[in-house]
Amino acid sequence: MAEKKLAIIATKGSFDWAYPPFILASTAAALGYEVQIFCTFYGLQLLRKKMDMKVTSIGNPGMPMPVPMPVLMQALPGMQSMMTMMMKQKMKSKGVASLEELRELCIEAEVKLIACQMTVDLFDFSSDDFLDGIEYGGAATFFEFAGESDICLFI
């Protein structure tokens, strides 16, 4: 059975949007896929040594709120941190893995993580900000793997 390939582009840097790439990558790896995640723009947050992503309800009317709250109130200082904390607690109580755990499982399963060099430079990041052992590359690097992939996702 030839190994299937999954190529993911991760472009979002919020706490909730960090889940789909890591969940799909770790699961695909468990199913025997060879997986690469190409992280670009805000998706670079997935590669930070210490992930510190937040969730926000601003501009996200689909997010279920424990109590109805006017949008202006949602924008008050501290609200974003509070929502992130509440989301983390909820996830823990429901047995949802932490991002750190999922990322570790991806790394264990040899999911290849690639940082987009152009956006690393754009945001003045240095390789010290990111996990050791990741690769750096550009669009052509992505297509080298994506061109041979069975599934290709833009997240």
């Binding site: 969940i23 770790s26 699961t27 468990a30 429901k94 047995g95 949802v96 893995a97 499982l105």
Partner: peptide
């Protein structure tokens, strides 16, 4: 028990 998707699969693997 108590674990949610995709952890049961990953642990089983």
């Amino acid at each position: 028990s108590g674990l949610n998707c995709p952890l049961p699969i990953l642990r089983a693997k």
